[in-house]
Design a protein around this nucleic acid. Structure first.
Length: 133
RNA sequence: ACAGUAGGCCGGUCUGUCGCGCACGCAAGUCGUGUGAGGAAAGUCCGGGCAACACAGGGCACCAUACUUCUUAACGAGAAGCUAUCCGCGAGGGUAGAGUAGCGUAACAGAAAAUAACCGCCGCCGCUGCAAAGGGGCGGUAAGGGUGAAAAAGUGGGGUAAGAGCCCACGGGUGGGGGUGGUGACACGUUCCGCCGUACGUCUUAUGGGUUGUAAGGUUAUGUAUAUCGGCGUUUGAGGGCUGCCCGUCCGAGCCGAGGGGUAAACCGCAAAGAGCUGCAUGGCGACAUGUAGCCAAGAUAAAUGGCAGACACCGUGUGAAAUAUCGCGGCACAGAACCCGGCUUAUAGGCUUGCUGUUUUU
């Protein structure tokens, strides 16, 4: 499952607002991860992600695109680390807070660490939900 | 050959593997096939298309442009020229270019920046002194000095107390008349009629400009309530449109504020055959034009066009007897479409190529 389709992307403006208002965050430098775990509203719903490289730190569009592509690749290759829950789905935002370009190998390593941490959080939510029901 | 100068062009290629956007197809699936960044996609500085508002009119203001002829859909762009000036041995390059009647300003330096006397030069009148001379006052003088971006038109002669376009000759610049050449800016020579500092601004003249930009604008869906309060108003006209203002004119029964509710999604615009691109021919010094043949070439929307691995090419460098061979190491620019075109500007590793110039060597 290495594909990455539109369903995986977080597009709705409402959900993004919700993510930043209610979400929690941690940092795996140079990434800052903001996540919001919520109950599934439909069967097919899955984890959705969103990438942002701030214009403030990278003035040239080329550099922003360069980083966004590498972060996206890192997520695509490693998203299997996240458990597929029956009851909850996560909205995740990856914000690049470093101030210089990093090699893909570095970004991928950090991505793996971040996803492992997220996986734990999702599993605990899942168990909690299961206990309630 | 080296150095330079003015242009033109290219700006990686291929393989494997895992992926992404869009279009089309069917036997309808995580299926095939096709296709997917630039010369600047950038800055948003001009011009145009397109769209909305408006589409009685007038005045004022504001902005832009400004040598000539031509090119272009258009432009503040481009081509070929003209004049002045500066840089370069040269090929060439930079800057400026409507008008000037009036008004204003001209840093620093300098006596003085346009009503020019600081020093100097000359005359006259006192004073000191035997004299030579010194110093003072009043006046004349732009020939000489130094300052400056710029100092009142050059050379020679006459003239004078000393001087001065004060006068004369020659010559210079500039405006006018008339002549020749040029489409024209202008050039050349003539007349001997007038004039003789420069720059910038203001001002004047001519031409052009309605405003806002695809987040324009349109359609559909979802939801619904405008509850309540305040102010102004309905021929005593609130408010709005008509460019920024004024006049004028048109519409006109609602408008403004507080507060509350809903949505924040899809489609069109928008992926296009057009002032289109490429080749060839003809015309033109050229920008371009005309004819003819071929081509159809990204379309996302938290935003696709990619990640990783390798090979080749190119550049630098080390090893080495060794070039461009071999091996090792490093590097490979500027930069990412967002409505579309034409220009301009800015960024850019490396490479290719044409004309011309200078120097040196050889024939």
């Amino acid at each position: 499952m290495l594909q990455l389709s539109k369903a995986d992307k977080l597009c709705s403006r409402t959900k993004i607002d919700q993510l930043f208002n209610k979400g929690q965050a941690f940092v795996v430098y140079p990434l800052r991860i903001v996540y919001h775990i919520h109950a599934k509203t439909s069967e097919t719903e899955c984890h959705q992600f969103f990438i942002n490289v701030p214009k403030k730190r990278f003035k040239k569009a080329v550099k922003r695109v360069w980083l966004r592509r590498r972060i996206r690749e890192a997520y695509r290759l490693n998203k299997a680390l996240l458990p597929a829950s029956q009851t909850v789905a996560a909205d995740i935002a990856f914000l690049y807070i470093g101030s210089e370009k990093k090699e893909f190998a570095v970004i991928e390593q950090r991505m793996k660490e971040a996803l492992a941490k997220l996986a734990e959080i999702i599993e605990s939510h899942d168990k909690c939900n299961a206990a309630q029901s």
